[in-house]
Design a protein around this nucleic acid. Structure first.
Length: 288
DNA sequence: CGATTTTGACCTGCGC
DNA sequence: GCGCAGGTCAAAATCG
């Protein structure tokens, strides 16, 4: 995530510095821009290192958790069979089956980044929607809005829009049914397949070829939310939007898990202790 | 004035 | 059978 973006960023800076240094030795130049770029490069490197450590921590946690689950699975008396694990939704087993499509593929989910202060539940996707209900669900304090396609009188397409539980600035739009008509031809909001992004930060209001990336991210499950996060961050760097990066970082800082993971990583680099030992700090997983 | 949104009531299916 | 929770309805309110 950050690693890729940071490398892109640092690569660009290096190029600029190289260009400046082409005719004169670097030390002779002492141009303020060079100093700025140097400090920026250093900052990005530091950030890269910190995030690399965080990534190590998280992947190790994942591996450990996975092996722990496998252990549970092996115990026939109190363990849950793998079949059961597959059939039970991880977020809320009490959810009604009506939410899912037992016979068809999973409903399409789109993650749309909006402005943090934008509290509307509008996702412009090239179709005309009419809101017919709103509910507060048990698993998410943010209300869920229900929309029906109003472009055709008998269009069966519907969608639900709710803010992401982990990041209120992200809208999760779940599409049910298919349109029996074409999409609007709005230059600003229409994509080749009728799904695009608008009403959101520039980082997702991107050129058509990149909008496809948003669709690729339109997968189901929380892991996609995480992917969305990382893709957002990449776009943020591409647009050189420091402000948005700061917003993202501040949201990470507010996340206790992130803080804890970062603290672990920092502690590890300081103490040089064995990795696995530290990882057990807040996992509460029995030692092997 | 028609289209759209809001919102409380109602419907429906599932688990206990 | 009952309660819970998600989904839908429809009248009232609001908007352009």
């Amino acid at each position: 995530m950050f690693l890729y973006a940071a490398n892109l960023c640092s690569g660009k800076k290096n190029q600029e510095v190289d260009t400046l240094n082409h005719s004169k030795p670097y030390t002779e130049y002492a141009h303020p821009l060079v100093e700025t770029l140097k400090s920026e490069l250093q900052r990005v490197r530091d950030e890269n290192n910190a995030l690399r450590l965080m990534f190590e921590v998280l992947s190790s946690k994942y591996t450990k958790l996975e092996s722990y689950l496998q252990e549970i699975d092996k115990k026939p008396d109190k363990g849950i069979s793998s079949n059961e694990i597959e059939s039970v939704p991880t977020f809320d087993a009490n959810k009604r089956s009506r939410l899912e499509f037992p016979t068809a593929k999973k409903p399409l989910q789109i993650f749309v980044k909006t402005h943090p202060r934008d509290d509307s539940l509008i996702v412009k996707d090239g179709y005309h929607w009419r809101k017919y209900g709103q509910k507060v669900t048990k698993d998410n304090a943010s209300p869920r809005a229900y929309f029906r396609c109003s472009m055709a009188p008998i269009c069966p397409a519907k969608k639900k829009v709710q803010r992401c539980l982990h990041d209120k600035s992200i809208l999760v739009a779940t599409y049910d049914g298919e349109h029996n008509h074409g999409a609007l031809h709005e230059s600003s909001s229409s994509a080749p397949n009728g799904i695009s992004v608008a009403n959101q930060l520039p980082l997702t209001s991107i050129a058509n070829d990149k909008e496809a990336m948003n669709i690729d991210l339109a997968l189901s499950g929380w892991s996609q939310t995480d992917r969305r996060h990382s893709e957002d961050v990449m776009h943020q760097h591409n647009y050189d939007s420091t402000l948005k990066v700061e917003e993202y970082v501040s949201s990470l800082i507010k996340d206790p898990e992130f803080t804890m993971s970062l603290a672990e990583a920092v502690a590890r680099t300081i103490t040089g202790q064995h990795k696995q030992q530290d990882l057990n700090l807040n996992l509460n997983i029995p030692e092997e």
